[in-house]
Design a binder for these strands. Structure first.
Lengths: 314, 314
DNA sequence: ATAAATTGCGTAAGTACTTACGTAATCATT
DNA sequence: AATGATTACGTAAGTACTTACGCAATTTAT
């Protein structure tokens, strides 16, 4: 199969399914060999019933990990072939109690010798292989239960894209972008306040000249995020005006800007970084925690929207 | 999933398929995430075309290991969505040449970044697991290509059943069985000859009393096979009248009787064992080779059906 | 050169599931 | 006690394949 050689591990899913299919196809022939009058696809249902006497449709479905609809269909066919019997439950008029019929029980005895051979063939196969497929499957199921494949791809995408993000210093030509990026999120959740207009319209005189700092995140040549440090007193800087464009979410930009701005604060000789925010901005608050900020109660803020204050001490 | 815990390795096939399914399900979500306008099931077809420009339906089917019918259906859908173009081949009026359309080529560029992330997620997953699923699959595919699962089960059955076979010595009450078992195969392929009637009707006087030996194979209390040693001169014994009942095939009975009779010959002080047979009885001849017999040219046989002579020297 | 076999393809129908949906029975809440 | 939510089930329809079949076009054998 040329395809697997070329796509390699990309096609892990279909390769697994294909391998499983191979086993199941042989299953059909094996049932014929032992002259067991069962449709191989019934096997899981049949096996459960041979172990537990009486089960409802839903119970079987849960046990074998298929949909109740599928079990319902199979049981219908099995009944037509007199392999099982069905009876409405007296205690609960909804449930349909399924058991093996006499014929089914007879088949189950025959099936036992078949299972002995299938089991030892499987075990031999697993022993012959150098790398244990059985344990590898267990590993994989465990890993996927911790974090499914989709999330893993998401994570990789973030990793890759964050490598394309560059952090650059303030330049007068970005003045408008600085305003727009902040305007975007403030007006989405709150209203522009007087203090906003002053800093957003005059970043150079209000932030940079008093000893502050502004940086930008650029992704594929486009400015998609920004953040500022405003000098306060006693070696404290305020982290403010952090903004990431909606369309650039999922690229770890907040984290990258945040880290950069903290390093910058250290470089400026800061002893701590302070910030104000609002609990409605959940992802932002989580980011601040991840960056090491702790919640504090500080002096009242000039901003109406501020309902949480945080600090990072070096 | 309770079922797998109980049936254990019996359900290897369905467990594999289920695991593969999990990957493929996430595949759908991943395609959405990257906004690639492709049905995930088209992926194998699409991938082949992105590598090779133009391919026929059958070529694609071969590469991806699916039926041509399936590819034909997919290509039809893909054409409806303007992802591929189709053109009858000029050199062969039967073949339908499929290529990516302009739209398809554009998609293929988008797809590339997706594949990068999927690939690194898969690789991380495989590295995280202690037992390598990838290598385990390769092992398993290799082992199955050498001997498929069905044959392995067959082998195990033979092994198990041959343990239930007992070899027992001649007893007058088996006189009729001795005749019947041999009668069964001789009349199936040849005609009864005079020499047959003599030995089959009088085993005691014709075989045992002159220093020969007869044994039987019993399976679950029923006599299903027999074999005789006839004393010749110069420390030679003839292996003759070996017969295994049709319905007891596949239980290794020929091999078990053969080995027993050779040991017996050794015990009787034989220097070699001789036999006559017919090349039409292929499984028998193979058995004799496996038991160590070599082809020889000996004196003419009293049996018309004999066209091959063999010997085993100790 | 002509018949027979093979090949490439498309369509239809089947398979082993799934999701979606409707119905009746039961449980929970007020 | 009435209403709404949940549960168990069956049926219908969809999905992603498969096998079966038929029809041309081509290759091989005679």
């Amino acid at each position: 199969m040329d395809f697997y050689a070329k796509t390699g591990k990309l096609a892990l899913g279909s390769r697994l399914r294909r391998l499983g299919q191979k086993f199941l196809e042989d299953g059909v022939k094996i049932f014929q060999l032992y002259e067991v009058d069962l449709d191989p696809k019934w096997f899981p249902v049949f096996y459960c019933l041979s172990q537990e006497e009486t089960l409802s449709i839903t119970e079987i479905a849960l046990k074998i990990g298929q949909s109740h609809a599928s079990v319902s269909q199979m049981v219908k066919e099995m009944k037509k072939r007199d392999v099982v019997t069905m009876q409405k439950s007296k205690s609960d008029g909804r449930v349909n109690k399924v058991s093996l019929s006499e014929k089914g029980k007879a088949i189950s005895l025959k099936l036992e010798t078949q299972l002995i051979d299938v089991k030892s063939a499987t075990e031999e196969l697993l022993n012959e292989s150098h790398h244990s497929l059985w344990k590898a499957i267990e590993d994989m199921e465990f890993l996927l239960s911790k974090e499914n494949f989709f999330k893993r791809v998401l994570k990789k995408r973030k990793e890759r894209e964050s490598k394309l993000v560059e952090i650059i210093d303030y330049d007068p030509k970005y003045k408008a972008v600085f305003r727009d990026l902040n305007h975007e999120w403030i007006t989405k959740y709150f209203q522009l306040e007087l203090a906003d207009n002053q800093t957003l319209d005059h970043p150079e005189t209000k932030i940079i000249q008093p000893g502050g700092y502004i940086c930008f995140a650029s992704y594929k040549g486009e400015i998609v995020g920004t953040c500022a440090l405003i000098k306060m007193d006693n070696g404290t800087y305020e982290l403010a005006k952090m903004a990431v464009s909606e369309k650039a979410r999922g690229k770890n930009i907040g984290w990258l800007i945040g880290q950069h701005i903290i390093e910058k604060a250290k470089g400026l000789g800061a002893k701590k970084v302070y910030l104000e925010s609002n609990t409605i901005l959940e992802p932002a608050i989580n980011l601040y925690y991840k960056l090491g900020f702790k919640r504090v109660v500080g002096p009242p803020s000039p901003y109406e929207r501020a309902n949480i204050q945080m600090e990072l001490e070096f």
